[in-house]
Design a protein around this nucleic acid. Structure first.
Length: 949
RNA sequence: GCCCGCGUGGCGGAAUUGGCAGACGCGCUAGAUUCAGGUUCUAGUGAUUAACAUCGUACAGGUUCAAAUCCUGUCGCGGGCACCA
């Protein structure tokens, strides 16, 4: 539990998850488990700061107020949190360790050979940078050989520094936390950059402000290095299907190949202007369908692709420049919104399809394909260039149709696809309809020979390769997966390409130009050449506190507010502090670890506590445990995490990433942070709409508690429906559980004494503020006795124990409550009510309605004492299956699958007995009269079905 | 557009996973208590029908002795992604 304490206070959605975990915490304690159930505050970040600005207060002030409000509201609901572990991300005692973890990231690199993070000291330098860094006086090979611009200075003094800065640059480029100048999402209204995940539909997720793409120098975290592990390890954790799917989509792994296309020679591109550092002879593309290589009829580069300027011919240059200008004017939002119509420009250049023989008689000149630029190809994904196969890619088909570029079918679709798409019912050209009438063989024949826009429809599925052969290799006849393998192997053997995996996941933009966040424990220094470089502060400098600022508001130019604190920024030795701050997600990336050892001032989380709670230590499950996962060392991590789905790709991905880094560095003992995760569903307003102030359908928990009490509120939150589902709130529905609690009360309490109490209380309230303990006036009702329960009573009780226990184990709170209602509806009719039966029921009730249950238990205890008076410490009752055994069963009898009668039989009736009893039934006889009984299905203890004909 | 998930009374939702559809609660109807209202209690409450009975789990098919549950297609709702090659 780690809410963001907003200015609006709690809404009814918050307590849903809190109530669920509180019920489980109380239940698990009753089973004898040691339960860690904490609460804390995720209090840094944009919304808090925006609220502070809006109300013209310091964020420190508003944060404290908001936390106080949340705490008051949460406490009013009676949750059994361990408040000694309360944490707050804005507390220096907490963010000291957030900064400390950042230093771990900064001082690590990802070793692709071991597939894990390692200390930066294990980094090996490439040969040209090799040298003894401890002996900087010795010149390295690089500085001796390649420096023509050091002529002004003393060669021997400059070289070691050059070498060291080259090594530093290399080292810095490998760190898990690194600085880069790259296009990022800039939000002027918020005055900060945002991560990809924080931008929704071209607007900021916080506040819904416009954002623009802008190159800026920023801190990044190398989450992409963990893409594969973040993807694979999803299989080891118990999360909902949809949440895993969201993470998979976000990571976006795709397997394919990179293929190099040579740019055609001098005939068309004779005016190429060579540019340093850009290869002029090759365009590398990424494709997931290397098997369609023979069908590539043109290429597309992203307009921002570096090679565009190099290959563009003089006659196309003006058009290309104009297009590039047009594209750069468009915001990313426009670029996606206006995506309906494809746009692009021919560069004038041609590329060579490496698979097609120049003299192939099948398609003359098809090995030479035009190179276009178009904004439907993204610079930021893959290589920023594609081979376009219109026949087998919808986007390419659309583009080809618009610019009249030829197509080539190279995958034979399944017959169903051909029929479905070219059948007479579809809107296809008449000539194609004609084809449909012919045999499927002819349809196939035509498909393989028609090099036109066959039905204007791309076939993107898997099929069989056709028209895909050259002198060296043929894919023809191979199913798509095999064709992919074969062509990739061929490309690799020829040095033309290689198998490649691409991810949509991008590195995590980690800096913000705001005040209300953790400062970076980083300073900037200048080297001899005047270049600035960054350096980590020592751990002893932590925590790095933000400077006190009168004006903490963001600036429109991206200069962080911290930069205004000149005294803070400039250090005596001439170095300068980093002035960006960390994003909100930093503090919430590891809070669950701090809970384990919240007061530790030596380390972020002590090893023993971490191992004990995260389950990596061998913890014996309690014999009472019915959920094996709790304290099960084979399923390590947080046993149960209840949270909203809104964090699917933000917090939950970031936290997994940090946890894996900490795991690699030996700081934690489990590879995943959260073993089991459940998303509570949204609670909607009474109008079935999402609750919002604007709609005026917000339900305030305070009002509910005032009106119906905390217990009824808790109970209703759970009775509403399954925890995971979205469900509408209904204040009328609260009345139902409120009445149930009233019936529970009357099950125990003498109504006359209750009335007496109420009258006494009214008088006391009006006359004397200091009333005696009037609760003592309330007496147990007659009929509650210390007598042995009847078999029927025991059965009712034990059925309830069983149902509640099993339902709690599966988080089915709504049906557990229904079971308790059934118990009360029965028990209230009992003449005598055995006190131990009632007490066991109170134990079942107390996780849901602790206040009422404890009160009634105390009342019961005063007349019928038990060893433990408080329910919080009472052991959970166990049901006795022997008591639930029925001696007679009611068995439904069907005739031809239709219910005709229900017969009573002994529970141990044999199949024969069941059959004859069923056939003997009068009602059944009516339906089988005059018909032959073909078959009798007898399912023991379940039903009899008589099949007649 | 693509990928997930879900469609059960007037409403929220149950259904031991293929075996009596509608538990429990809300609402509604009638009755009791009450001067009255509220509270509380009792009975009823899927649809059609006077009744026998028939029909009913979004719709249309299919598998099965038996389908809310499994399969195919269609429609609707919710969520995610959105030119990711």
């Amino acid at each position: 539990m780690f809410p963001y304490p907003s200015g609006a206070g709690l809404h009814v959605g918050h307590p849903e998850g809190y109530t669920a975990t509180d019920i489980l915490a109380r239940y698990k304690r009753a089973l004898g488990h040691n339960v860690l159930h904490p609460m804390g505050w995720d209090a840094f970040g944009l919304p808090a700061e925006q609220y502070a600005i809006k109300t013209r207060q310091h964020p420190r002030q508003t944060t404290e107020q908001n936390i106080a409000t949340f705490k008051r509201q949460i406490k009013s609901l009676g949750f059994s949190y361990d408040w000694t572990r309360e944490i707050d991300t804005t507390d220096p005692k907490y963010f000291k360790w957030t900064q400390w973890i950042f230093l771990r990231l900064y001082n690590s690199w990802f070793n692709p050979e071991t597939n894990r993070a390692e200390p930066i000291s294990t980094l090996r330098y490439p040969p040209e940078l090799e040298g003894d860094s401890s002996n900087v006086g010795q010149a390295s090979r690089l500085s001796q050989s390649s420096k023509e611009n050091s002529k002004d200075g003393d060669r021997r003094d400059a070289c070691p520094a050059e070498s060291e800065s080259a090594r530093r640059a290399y080292r810095d480029s490998k760190r898990l936390a690194y600085v880069t100048e790259a296009p990022v999402w800039w939000c002027e209204s918020l005055g900060t950059v945002l991560a990809n995940e924080e931008v929704v539909d071209g607007k900021s997720e916080v506040g819904d402000f416009p954002v623009v793409r802008k190159p800026m120098r920023q801190w990044m975290l190398r989450i992409t290095a963990y893409a594969e592990r973040l993807l694979n390890d999803l299989e080891t954790i118990d999360w909902s299907h949809s949440l895993k799917e969201m993470q998979r989509n976000w990571i976006g792994r795709s397997e394919g190949a990179e293929v190099d296309f040579e740019v055609a020679g001098s005939s068309r591109c004779d005016d190429r202007t060579p540019q340093r550092g850009v290869p002029t002879d090759k365009i590398r593309v990424f494709t997931t369908r290397p098997d369609t290589l023979f069908g590539a009829t043109y290429m597309v580069l992203a307009p921002e692709h570096k090679i565009v300027d190099v290959i563009t011919t003089s006659e196309q240059r003006a058009a290309v420049e104009a297009y590039k200008a047009e594209v750069s004017r468009k915001s990313d939002l426009e670029r996606t919104e206006l995506a309906k119509e494809k746009t692009g420009v021919f560069t004038g250049a041609y590329a060579i399809n490496p698979a097609i023989d120049p003299n192939d008689p099948l398609w003359p000149n098809q090995h030479r394909i035009p190179v276009w630029i178009a904004d439907y190809v993204l610079a930021s994904y893959g290589t920023g260039a594609i081979m376009a196969v219109p026949s087998h890619d919808e986007r390419d088909m659309e583009f080809a149709l618009k610019f009249e570029i030829p197509t080539q079918n190279v995958v034979m679709p399944p017959d169903d696809w051909l029929r479905h798409n070219f059948g007479p019912s579809t809107n296809v050209p008449k000539d194609v309809q004609e084809i449909y009438r012919t045999a499927i063989e002819e349809l196939r024949e035509t498909y393989s020979h028609t090099n036109a826009y066959f039905g204007q429809k791309a076939f993107v599925g898997e099929g069989t390769a056709i028209n895909s052969a050259n002198a060296e290799i043929s894919l023809d006849g191979l199913p798509t997966p095999e064709a992919k393998k074969k062509i990739t192997g061929w490309l690799e053997s020829k040095g033309l390409g290689k198998r490649t995996i691409n991810y949509k996941l991008r590195d995590w933009l980690f800096s913000r130009q705001r005040y209300w966040g953790e400062p970076f424990p980083i300073v900037w220094k200048q080297d001899a050449g005047g270049n600035w470089f960054h350096e980590a502060l020592p751990e002893s400098a932590l925590p790095v506190l933000p400077p006190p600022l009168d004006d903490y508001k963001p600036t429109p130019d991206g200069q962080p507010p911290l930069a205004r604190a000149k005294d803070w920024v400039n250090l005596p030795d001439g170095s300068r502090r980093e002035t960006n701050t960390m994003p909100q997600w930093a503090g919430s990336c590891w809070y669950y670890l701090r809970y384990l050892d919240a007061k530790n001032d030596q380390t972020f989380c002590g090893g023993a506590a971490e191992k004990y709670w995260m389950g990596a230590a061998a913890v014996q499950p309690s014999p009472d445990s019915t959920i094996q996962r709790f304290n099960d060392s084979t399923k390590p991590g947080v046993d149960l995490y209840v949270g909203g789905t809104e964090h699917a790709v933000l917090h939950l991905l970031y936290a997994r990433f940090w946890h894996k880094v900490l795991f690699d560095l030996g700081c934690v003992s489990t590879p995943e942070p959260f073993f089991k995760l459940v998303n509570q569903g949204l609670i909607l307003g009474e109008d079935n709409q999402k609750m919002s102030k604007a709609r005026g359908n917000v339900v305030n928990p305070d009002d509910m508690v005032n009106e119906y009490g905390a217990d009824a509120f808790r109970l209703y939150e759970m009775f509403l429906g399954p925890l995971q589902d979205a469900k509408p709130w209904s204040t009328k529905g609260v009345v139902g559980v409120y009445k149930f609690l009233g019936r529970v009360w009357r099950l125990f309490v003498d109504e006359e004494s209750d009335t007496e109490f109420e009258q006494a209380e009214t008088i006391a309230n009006t006359q004397r503020p200091e009333a005696p303990n009037l609760l003592e006036l309330i007496k147990l009702r007659p009929g509650i006795e210390d007598t042995p329960p009847s078999p029927a009573q025991l059965k009712t009780l034990h059925a309830c124990i069983r149902k509640v226990t099993e339902d709690l184990d599966h988080l089915r709170f709504n049906t557990a409550i229904a079971a308790m209602m059934v118990f009360v509806n029965d028990a209230i009719t009992w003449e005598t009510k055995p006190c131990f039966v009632l007490r066991d029921f109170l134990i079942l009730l107390h996780p849901f309605a602790p206040h009422l249950a404890e009160e009634l238990c105390a009342k019961l205890h005063s007349e019928f004492p038990t060893p433990t008076s408080a329910l919080s410490y009472a052991p959970w009752p166990k049901y006795d299956p022997a008591l639930l055994v029925e001696d007679t069963l009611e068995i439904p009898v069907q005739v031809n699958g239709k219910l005709r009668d229900v017969i009573k039989v002994p529970a141990d009736a044999s199949q024969q007995q069941l059959e004859s009893a069923a056939l003997a039934s009068e009602k059944v006889k009516q339906f089988i009269q005059g018909k032959t009984v073909k078959k009798v299905i007898v399912v023991p203890r379940k039903l009899v079905n008589i099949v007649v004909g």
